[in-house]
């Protein structure tokens, strides 16, 4: 019983085994390097600082949504309502702000910045309903958030009734479309949200629980972890991130209207999955999501730079997502093979 305890992994682990275990992290990174190399070689306009700023700006809103979604997917759940909640929150924000006389909406303008906390409360409420449905009633998140997708769209539609609103509080306008020292605020906000998301996930007890609940829900329960509370919390976090993205998105786009976020559902899910976070839960993280965001951003932007047919672009994005799914599932299989020891 006096065997020395070391904290390092055994040094004899063959490199190949370690690489296999890291497939989930290495494949997205390799894809990113490959894409950057490819586009740089094909289009001289691609590898410039200005274009890097473009890419970062283009992925910022997706990034904010993807942070919440990373938590959800790590718990082996899914949130299909992110884009719809974003849209509803953005519209609610505009609804509570004084609009130009030409905008024909029966809105409820509020003084000052009051619209911002109220809009955030709105998305929190939507998230709380999702959390209640999933954890208390026991509706699978896939179906529950599908219903919430429709509810979010419905709220947005009722508030603007086919019209378009343009004005949002100045603070949101600055964060969504302004810049400081040449850096767009929205990139800074996205960076901060990613950082906060990463810190909470890696360095807090809640973050550890998220991984454990996703990795083995029954075991988490047996360890006395409040599984339902954790799942409820990630659904609320996801709604909150979506709401934030929705508000900034209105400023970014310059208007609030129905269905303007529709692409963001698929983009956000793609970013998380392409980055290598396991669809089965328990493995991955914000670092993976950042790589996933960059892969998607570089792909979108780079295909424009090499003047790819914009219709073919849609197909290519689909194929990239499929490839990511294959790697995701394959990585999971390698992992589970390694864990069966006799």
């Amino acid at each position: 019983m006096s065997t020395p305890v070391t904290t390092a992994a055994p040094a004899s682990t063959p490199l190949r085994d370690r690489l296999r275990g890291q497939l989930r992290n290495l494949a997205p990174f390799a894809t990113l390097i490959l894409l950057v190399g490819l586009f740089s070689a094909l289009a001289p306009s691609f590898a410039t600082w200005g274009n890097l700023a473009n890419i970062l700006q283009q992925v910022s809103i997706t990034a904010i949504i993807a942070v919440g979604l990373t938590y959800v997917i790590l718990c082996a759940e899914i949130d299909l309502s992110v884009a719809s909640v974003a849209n509803a929150t953005g519209i609610l924000l505009a609804f509570l702000t004084v609009q130009d006389a030409s905008v024909n909406i029966a809105n409820l303008p509020l003084p000052g910045l009051l619209a911002i906390p109220l809009a955030l409360l709105g998305c929190l409420a939507l998230g709380a309903v999702t959390a209640f449905g999933v954890t208390r009633i026991g509706i699978p998140s896939f179906i529950m958030t599908l219903a919430m997708l429709q509810i979010g769209n419905g709220i947005g539609a009722l508030l603007v009734r086919g019209q378009i609103a343009y004005t949002v509080p100045d603070l949101v306008l600055t964060l969504g479309s302004g810049s400081i020292g040449g850096v767009p605020w929205i990139v800074i906000v996205a960076g901060l949200v990613l950082l906060l998301g990463h810190l909470v996930l890696t360095y807090t007890r809640f973050g550890r629980y998220v991984y454990m609940v996703g990795g083995n829900r029954e075991a988490a329960e047996h360890a006395g972890v409040g599984v339902r509370a954790v799942i409820g919390a990630v659904m609320v976090i996801s709604a909150l991130c979506s709401g934030l993205a929705g508000m900034l998105g209105v400023a970014y786009f310059g208007s609030a209207q129905q269905n303007q976020f529709d692409n963001y559902l698929l983009d956000a899910i793609s970013a998380v999955v392409v980055g290598g976070t396991s669809l089965f839960g328990g493995m991955g993280g914000i670092g993976n999501t950042i790589i996933g965001l960059l892969v998607l951003g570089v792909l979108n932007n780079g295909l424009d730079h090499i003047r790819m047919d914009s219709f073919l672009k849609i197909l290519i994005r689909g194929l990239v997502l499929l490839l990511a799914l294959v790697i995701n599932v394959y990585a999971q299989r390698l992992r589970s093979q390694a864990r069966v020891a006799g």
């Binding site: 990795g215 075991a219 972890v225 589970s336």
Partner: peptide
Amino acid sequence: RAMLFAPEPVYRNVTIAML
């Protein structure tokens, strides 16, 4: 299987209940 987190390191399996 109902108690352990197979891919997680040993120490996280030990401390999960006392974090």
